[in-house]
Design a protein around this nucleic acid. Structure first.
Lengths: 201, 201
DNA sequence: CCACGCGACTGGACAGTGTCAACTCGGCCC
DNA sequence: GGGCCGAGTTGACACTGTCCAGTCGCGTGG
């Protein structure tokens, strides 16, 4: 086991636990025990118990940013969604596939990311969305409309993701194919996926 | 102190703590100490630590149901929102005003409500939303459209609420008046507040 | 009147947890 | 070789949730 391999091992183990049981029951000591080291070894890689969650959150935001950019870049595909639908779906599907990360990312009591740290991937992800909305609405749109519409898109995706993961919706939608269709139906019903309606207040 | 007054005291204290510091740092023993009783007294009113969260969650869903029904009933007012906007806003404003409850309600690891218990207020709240969407879309709408649109409304409200409470949005919107306007601007940007766009797939 | 049960509550104990502190050990650079 | 530093160890401490056995007051049936 090379140096800082333990860090990766513990991180993966923590993510798996969070995905299955949630963050609260995660035990620092049990992680160490599972990795076969003493109960203090993780402290050389994470300052705190919260340090683990901070690492998971940062990793998760980086992955989310990748997923969103990938969704926007893949629009050349033949049977692709329109960009807005692709963006929304990428968010929700990322959350479903990486719920171990997602459950931590928006829990500031666990992983507090300070906004003063500009290159944070979470901010970049939101900027990606804002840029898309701005170019989608065209130059005539006011900054308030852009901001409100970007927030609406983020809210829709975020709400659907959390309701599917932790809420009472999950067991109502079946396998992956059905799930993909349901996500797109919800996005379509939201009125945020195309520009068929006026946007100025 | 009359009987089961301790229960109310502990519940209020717990809600206040959750609203300020989140659920995880809530200490059963500290609640008892703050109430001036022994560390075992709460066990006579709550089976578990999770029992407290279950009580908070159930209370919260009942309050949410009240708020949503109130929003739909108040449409006779002069300067009122349209019903869909009122419904969305009532959800978000409930979450902001009662974040101590809201933070617990959608955490099944803390407060698991089994769907087999039909009179649960959470199910009734969702049913209220579905009924509204059905009557809003009219009899021609398919059940899939109704389900998808209701989910979209719930997702938008839920996502905006959680992003405002726990996410990076809160400090960007100012006092209550501004906040009210922002919530409505976000709702308006979606196509969920009026019927100006086609709904069939 | 009195024993009885029972609900509300107390105190002690136990395992498990996060974290501080001191210590050991191997490799690396000057 | 001497010193340093990262990685890991053991030990201790306060705190937590929870199990268990009690104590106290009060209403009720004999």
């Amino acid at each position: 086991m090379t140096a800082s391999d333990l860090r990766r091992t513990i991180l993966d183990s923590a993510v798996a636990h969070v995905a299955e049981h949630g963050p609260d029951s995660l035990s620092f000591r049990r992680l160490a025990q599972a990795a076969g080291v003493s109960h203090q070894a993780p402290y050389h890689h994470f300052s705190d118990r919260r340090g683990i969650f901070a690492a998971i959150g940062a990793e998760g935001f980086a992955m989310l940013l990748d997923a969103m950019r990938g969704a926007l870049d893949a629009d050349a595909d033949a049977d692709a969604d329109d960009p807005a639908t692709a963006l929304l779906a990428s968010y929700v599907e990322f959350a479903l596939e990486h719920r171990g990360h997602f459950r931590v990312m928006f829990r500031p009591d666990l992983c507090s990311y300070d906004e003063s740290d500009p290159p944070h991937s979470g901010g970049q992800a939101f900027d990606t969305l804002v840029d898309f909305v701005r170019s989608d609405l065209g130059p005539g749109a006011s900054i308030d409309d852009v901001r409100a519409r970007a927030t609406a898109m983020w809210s829709l995706a975020h709400g659907l993701a959390t309701l599917l993961i932790d809420g009472p919706l999950e067991h109502r939608i079946g396998p992956v194919a059905e799930r993909r269709r349901f996500i797109r139906a919800v996005a379509h019903q939201s009125g945020l996926t195309d520009l068929g309606r006026p946007v100025t207040a």
